[in-house]
Computed example of a mutant assay.
Amino acid sequence: MDSSKRKRIFIVIPGIFTVIASALILLSQNFWVVSLSQVATAIAGAAIGPAVVGITLGIVKQKGFNRQNGLNQAFNHAGNVVGAGLSGYLGLKYGMHAIVLLAALFGILSIVSVLMIPSKSIDNDAARGVANDKGENENVSGLKVLLKCKPLLILAAALAFFHLGNGALLPLYGMAAASKMQENAYMFVALTVIIAQVVMILASIAGMKIAEKNGYWMIMLISFISLPIRGLIASQMISEVGLYPVQILDGIGAGLQSVAVPALVAHILNGTGRINIGQGAVMTVQGVGAALSPAIGGWIAQQIGYSHAFVILGFFAVVSIILWFYNAETMKKECAPSSNH
């Protein structure tokens, strides 16, 4: 993304991968075919985040990034709500094939949408945060960018611990609650997605407005604090009623981070020409935490039960909170509003 002059292709290719993945599942439910489709989907998901950030920066520059990224995330979560609602309705009425075809349709629409953006409207220097041409051709790895920049390292570590707890909480909570209400299991799972995504829309817009006045430090702190509270509530309310506070808190945490993290990385690395490598590095560390979470959470739940697992998973974010407070002086400077940055 940093070196490419054809940034739209990084959304076009994930769109194609989504269509291919849908087609593969329609053609066969063989283990290896389904696995391959999930690999394609994972590659698409990994590429599209930095791509949207890079294109957004290239169009609106640093000054307009906070507002536009907030709007992007609000529409992203709105799309998830519509997708979940349509999937539930079409799946109930026409079966799994309709859901797969819907995913393919959305993949095609994403390709059409991005190709409507004129390539000339994307400033490639602004998209990577370049201050001058120095070092443009250097081969810099994401790991090197991460290790050389203390604020970026603090942010990545805090996010890794947060997602180490967050990644498994919803799937385990869904399993625990659905096992108690088997007759409503499908509706329960659908509600877990819709409630969280609706709250994320509101949190994204709120986060955008808070950041304009007060910066990102408090936004990130609130997102970290939401997880221990969520874990405690989940441990005490494994029921349909408990779904609402658990998923509202999920929406607050994820919605605020979806606005703050890309903007914060862009602020920290502005002028380096390595913004998108930094985005990828932070996403990788964050992803390691999220990937380990289900294994850890599942093992804890198996050993000592769901309730204890939710408390322990929630309290992984306490490490994030401690890191955030311990490095408050450094991070508050980086998290200051754009006008003060």
Rank of each mutant, 00 (worst) to 15 (best):
N270G: 05
A263Q: 05
P228F: 13
V282H: 02
S223N: 03
G280C: 05
W217Y: 15
M208K: 10
I304F: 12
S258L: 14
I248N: 05
V246T: 08
E212N: 06
Q302M: 14
S226F: 10
G273N: 01
V241L: 14
D250Q: 12
Q257K: 14
Q236T: 13
V285S: 02
I296D: 03
G271W: 11
S226G: 05
Q303P: 00
Q279E: 11
H267M: 12
I225Y: 04
V282I: 14
G253F: 02
N270E: 11
A260C: 09
A291G: 10
Y306G: 06
G242M: 14
V282M: 13
A281Y: 07
K209L: 15
L292K: 10
S293Y: 04
R230E: 03
I248P: 00
S239N: 01
G251A: 04
A234M: 11
L264A: 09
I248S: 04
G273Q: 02
Y244F: 15
S235R: 01
S204L: 07
S235V: 13
A290F: 12
I296P: 00
Q247D: 06
G253N: 09
A290H: 00
N214K: 15
G251H: 07
I277N: 06
G278S: 06
V285G: 02
I229A: 10
K209S: 12
I252D: 03
L227Q: 08
S235Y: 00
G287S: 14
V246L: 10
S239A: 11
A206V: 12
D250W: 12
L249M: 02
K213Q: 15
L269C: 06
R274T: 01
L232R: 03
A234G: 12
L221A: 13
G251F: 07
Y216G: 06
L249I: 10
L232V: 15
V282S: 04
A281S: 09
G251C: 08
R230V: 06
A234S: 12
E240V: 15
G271R: 02
I296N: 07
S239P: 04
I300M: 10
G207T: 01
G271C: 13
A254S: 06
R230Q: 09
I296A: 08
A281E: 14
M283R: 03
Q236M: 15
L243M: 13
I277R: 13
G273Y: 00
Q279S: 13
R230T: 03
P294D: 08
V259M: 13
G278Y: 10
G207I: 08
K209T: 05
V246C: 08
G271F: 05
I296H: 01
G298R: 05
A295P: 00
G215A: 02
R230G: 03
I205L: 15
Q302T: 07
Q302E: 15
S293K: 03
V265T: 15
L227A: 07
